[in-house]
Design a protein around this nucleic acid. Structure first.
Lengths: 148, 148
DNA sequence: TCTTAAATGAAAATCGTTTCTCTTTAGAAG
DNA sequence: CTTCTAAAGAGAAACGATTTTCATTTAAGA
């Protein structure tokens, strides 16, 4: 299970250091996005220490390599999660439980084409983030207070 | 032309102060997104002074009211621009000239429906940002060096 | 006009993120 | 199994955008 990550890192020409592997492992065990700070908190016990800058640096590198995805947060604060598909970074985020699910919406290809036609220029990239309640949270919400 | 904005502000229960109006006017004259800092720089001459916090505060309030839109910037720094449609915040941004154009893509309604079905929960909102080159910049790019 | 809640400015605080510099280490080479 | 070197890490300090505090001013309804 670790070799898999080492392999990934080798592909990115990144050394397979214990901390880097730990970050990857942690993210792989999460079904939600995690902040650099959070990762740091959780990992500092396991090693003599891990520096916050190290966490940031690694996340940045991994994100650049497409192994993890940066969540778009309206204001500041970045969040990351392991992404299954290196080229389709569209995700559904439950605002209640923060679970992240990949969204492989075909409509997006149409979207690019459509925007392309409408603008008459060239579409280079797009970012899509869908926020909402996942099934279980929606059910839970409906069960209790149901806010309008 | 000013009364229009006063009206808008009244609807949001915000006082029509000179600075607030100036911010709105400035944004209305821009066809691109502008940073709080930039707005501040451009406005400080016209008044005895305008504080950066004031700019931030106002932008936040106006964005909350749906009069302006916050651009999703991967990392830090927020940008705003006046939006024509209070409920459709989808925009095309030219990475070259920073011009912003509204994208009223119908596919997005399908998108919501589709994600809704796929997730089985409830979609509350979504953010879409399309980056690329607008027509004129695309032409210009093609005319000169054409990068890849 | 009067009154009051809202708005503002200036300075200081916050806080996420990055940079610097020196030390340690992964991993290719021998 | 050592050696060597570029990459990686720690810790502290720097950065810089955004926010808070609080005393002062002002819009706008009474």
């Amino acid at each position: 299970m670790n070799g898999q990550f080492s392999e990934t890192l080798k592909g990115l020409k990144l050394k397979a250091t214990p901390k880097r592997l730990a970050i990857l492992r942690l993210l792989s065990q999460e079904s939600t996005y995690v902040s650099p700070e959070e990762i740091w908190q959780r990992l500092r016990g396991r090693f003599g220490a891990i520096g916050l800058p190290t966490v940031y640096r690694n996340l940045e590198e991994l994100a650049a390599g497409g192994v993890i995805t940066k969540v778009i947060h309206p204001n500041r604060q970045l969040y990351y999660f392991l992404c299954s598909n290196r080229h389709h970074h569209h995700h559904f985020i439950c605002v209640a439980c923060r679970r992240v699910e990949d969204v492989d919406v075909c409509a997006l290809n149409d979207l690019e084409r459509e925007v392309d036609a409408k603008i008459g220029g060239r579409v280079l990239s797009h970012i899509v983030q869908v926020n909402g309640l996942c099934r279980s949270c929606a059910v839970a919400a409906a069960g209790s207070g149901e806010k309008q």
